[in-house]
Each structure stands twice: as structure tokens, then as C-alpha cells.
């Protein structure tokens, strides 16, 4: 199908994305073991988070941990790049699709 010139790269990516979403969604919904495992992971992470970060703590507190403050900050800063990067990729893919659709419409109109 993708060898055919009628199908643009953008459309191929869209199909791939949909397939991925359906597969992942199906996996999460239909595999209780996976759901249970991910739930446990989430609980563990939440517990760890509660222990590590107390928003009211100050550097003058005896148990204040600079390491954790700095690590979590770096992770969050990188996180912003990831979030905006994901949006950027989605926009680039959808941009290609829409550009192709517009180009086709123009080509049809000129015929």
C-alpha cells in the first residue's frame, strides 16, 4: 500500500499512529496482568514521591536533600522538552497530512 504514490507519507504515519494507539489501548484494556502491574508501579511511584518531596520543606530543615531537589528539577525541565516535543511531532505529522490534502485538492481543481 505504501509503495503506491497515491498514499502520502503523512497518511502512512497517520495509519501507523492509529494502529499503535489501538494496539496499546487494546493491550491495556484486555490484559489484566499488565493493568495490575502498571497499577502497582504507579502506587510505588506515588509512595516514593510522597516520601521524597515535601513542598513545605526548606533548605534550613535538617533532613532537606539538595540532591533530590536538583534531580527532580532536571527531570522536570527535560519533561517540558518532551511534552512540547511530542506536540511538535504531532503537529509536523498532521501538517504533512493537511499539506498533502490541500495539494491534492488544488491539483483536482486545476484539472
Amino acid at each position: 500500500m505504501f509503495a503506491n504514490k497515491k498514499y502520502s507519507a503523512g497518511k502512512a504515519l497517520l495509519v501507523l499512529g492509529l494502529c499503535l494507539a489501538i494496539t496499546l489501548g487494546g493491550f491495556m484494556a484486555l490484559t489484566p496482568a499488565a493493568a495490575h502491574a502498571s497499577g502497582q508501579a504507579v502506587e510505588k511511584a506515588a509512595d516514593a514521591g510522597n516520601k521524597l518531596i515535601d513542598g513545605n520543606s526548606r533548605p534550613s530543615d535538617p533532613d532537606f536533600d539538595w540532591g533530590i531537589a536538583i534531580y527532580t528539577l532536571i527531570i522536570r525541565f527535560v519533561g517540558i522538552f518532551i511534552v512540547l516535543g511530542v506536540i511538535q511531532v504531532i503537529m509536523q505529522v498532521s501538517g504533512r497530512i493537511f499539506t498533502n490534502i490541500d495539494a491534492k485538492k488544488k491539483a483536482q481543481a486545476s484539472k
Binding site: I80, F81, V83, L84, G85, I87, Q88, M91, Q92, G95
Partner: peptide
């Protein structure tokens, strides 16, 4: 922003 998605990273 939609026309030039690369600028998204600058916002980060």
C-alpha cells in the same frame, strides 16, 4: 505556530 512547529522547542 502550526505553520512552523519547530518553534515549539524554543518555548521549552
Amino acid at each position: 505556530l502550526i505553520a512552523n512547529p519547530r518553534t515549539m522547542v524554543i518555548g521549552a
